[in-house]
Design a protein around this nucleic acid. Structure first.
Lengths: 195, 195
DNA sequence: TTTTTAAACCCTAACCGTTAGTGTTACGGT
DNA sequence: ACCGTAACACTAACGGTTAGGGTTTAAAAA
């Protein structure tokens, strides 16, 4: 698998990267709102239509690689050792993700995101999609008997944990605090106790 | 209070209503995406700029009166009888809101919303704002000692309950199921037990 | 009352993200 | 060597949104 990619795919990847780099550079230099799509295309030396064949929207230029987010969460669920409990696994993963985006190098980018309502909104709707994927992964987990609603609820709560922790004064501690609440909610949704 | 409003304010309110009515009529007739802002303005017989002085965006035309949502939730918290527990109050309110928007008359509008990604996204970002207001209201509740993070978390969970219940097969039952989970989370966040 | 202020409204023209239509180039399979 | 097609370019437009600048009229000040 992963045969040596041909010249074609390498060129395509290079173009995509060139666009993403140009976009990030301009956005950080002049501010997201002050940079137009036409500016980015010119800086990357591509046509506007080409830009949009690589990125679905202006906002997507900023969240270039955040399909990882979705995959990491669902894989944490589906790919964990058998009998390993669900929520500690998710907590560890959220910890890692929060740490990743509160790292020093990422600060300017997140500052830019927080400053733009359009970007905040986009990020939120991204997270909604992530929550749906996560809910599906949780519902498919073997040896589990919660309702569909409970699974979707927990998935939302986990995504909320990420969003809230990012904004908290002490993100790491916030993850733990919120996950204590989620654990309690999850146990309540279990069909066994007192039945 | 509420002195007789002058002619000016009455005219303004009438214009706003005329725009909202025209918009809803056209949207339901032809579909949200097939109707342009210029169409709505023409139907309401106002200038496009006037339309935008009453509504911040095209999507806001659809969610015309949903500031109620925010106020109902925060007032349910701040205006409840002393010593009345928080979560049952919120559960009752969410029940009412879910019932309201799953009522028969509201079906066409919600069908339209579900059919448009732009509207779904807008609604979600609206709910984020609602969650923030609710979190503030909860945090300001007297005789309570949860952390800020816990309050924001619970507020999010409550808003999630609304969103998830709306989409569930049996919305009323879903509200109860999710609130059982939220209660457990809330108790875990209380600083008293086992200390 | 008269005068003044400013809110509500109108119109035109544009800005900006995004897309359709239509070619052109050049890689990759045959 | 040849053909199909993926990647890219160019132009022009569409649709939401805003800026600029003007007119009317309710309401507050004189």
């Amino acid at each position: 698998m992963t045969v040596p990619p041909g010249r074609r795919e390498r060129k395509k990847a290079a173009t995509r990267q060139k666009i993403a780099d140009a976009a990030l550079r301009l956005f950080l230099e002049r501010g997201y709102d002050a940079v137009g799509i036409r500016d980015v295309a010119a800086e990357a030396d591509v046509a506007v239509t080409t830009l949009f064949s690589h990125f679905a929207s202006k906002e997507a230029l900023v969240f270039e690689q955040d399909q990882d987010f979705e995959q990491r969460l669902t894989q944490a669920v589906t790919g964990r050792a058998p009998h390993e409990p669900l929520l500690p696994t998710l907590r560890r993963e959220i910890h890692a993700l929060v740490r990743h985006c509160t790292a020093d190098g990422a600060a300017p980018v997140w500052h830019m995101i927080d400053a733009s309502p359009a970007l905040r909104e986009y990020e939120e709707s991204m997270r909604l999609r992530h929550a749906e994927s996560l809910a599906t992964a949780i519902a498919a987990d073997p040896g589990r008997s919660q309702t569909t609603t409970a699974c979707r609820t927990i998935a939302r709560f986990v995504i909320d944990a990420y969003a809230l922790a990012r904004e908290a004064a002490d993100p790491e501690a916030a993850v733990d605090e919120i996950f204590r609440m989620i654990e309690a909610a999850w146990e309540t949704a279990s069909p066994s106790p007192l039945m």
